[in-house]
Amino acid sequence: MLARDWLNAEERFVPGAELFRSDRAFTTWAYTISHSQLLLRTRTAWRDGCRQSRIDVLFKPVQAMKIRIEYDGLVIRCATSAEEEWIRADNTGLALDARCLILETGGDQDYVVTHAVGWEEDMETDRDPSKLAGFAPGSDPNRILG
């Protein structure tokens, strides 16, 4: 099933609530300072004679992050009160209405402080532009990666 969701309303961000889960591998695909966008993407490898779908996860605007290049499976959830407290202590000057999201993979945790997160699953290729994010020509992953 192909899916799409965009979360930016306060009631969707309940402390500790799971927002997204996938067993697929994700790569940090693009980040732009000008639009404060972070894009994570799955690869569209062939499996059993069929090309897998592509999943894009977009965080926008990003105020702070601690991320890795690759995630082997990905769970995105809202930070608990205690987690939000230490994230905000390590990152001064964050907007009070920014959401602290935890990215979990293989027992490890990263975070993104953002105002919205969304994802889309489609049948586009790795190199096709994201339907969720527009990138300036100088930072367009398709242009940079060829």
Rank of each mutant, 00 (worst) to 15 (best):
L7S: 04
L7M: 14
N8G: 08
A9D: 14
A9K: 14
E10T: 15
E10V: 14
E10F: 13
E10D: 15
E11L: 10
E11I: 15
E11A: 15
E11H: 11
R12F: 07
R12V: 11
R12T: 14
F13K: 08
F13A: 07
F13G: 09
V14S: 09
P15L: 08
P15F: 04
P15T: 07
G16S: 12
G16E: 09
A17H: 12
A17N: 10
E18Y: 07
E18G: 13
E18W: 07
L19G: 06
L19P: 14
F20Q: 12
F20E: 07
F20G: 15
R21C: 13
R21F: 14
R21T: 13
S22Q: 06
S22P: 12
D23H: 09
D23W: 03
D23E: 07
D23A: 07
D23I: 10
R24H: 08
R24F: 03
R24Q: 07
A25D: 07
A25T: 15
F26R: 04
F26K: 05
F26Y: 14
F26G: 07
F26C: 10
T27Q: 13
T27M: 11
T28E: 01
T28R: 04
W29H: 10
W29L: 02
A30M: 04
A30G: 07
Y31T: 01
Y31M: 02
T32I: 03
T32E: 06
I33P: 04
S34F: 14
S34A: 11
H35P: 08
H35Y: 06
H35V: 08
S36F: 01
S36C: 04
S36V: 00
S36A: 09
S36D: 01
Q37N: 06
Q37E: 08
L38W: 02
L38I: 00
L38R: 00
L39Q: 01
L39G: 02
L39C: 00
L39T: 01
L40E: 00
L40N: 01
R41E: 00
R41M: 07
R41V: 00
T42N: 06
T42E: 01
T42H: 01
T42V: 03
R43E: 15
R43M: 11
T44D: 02
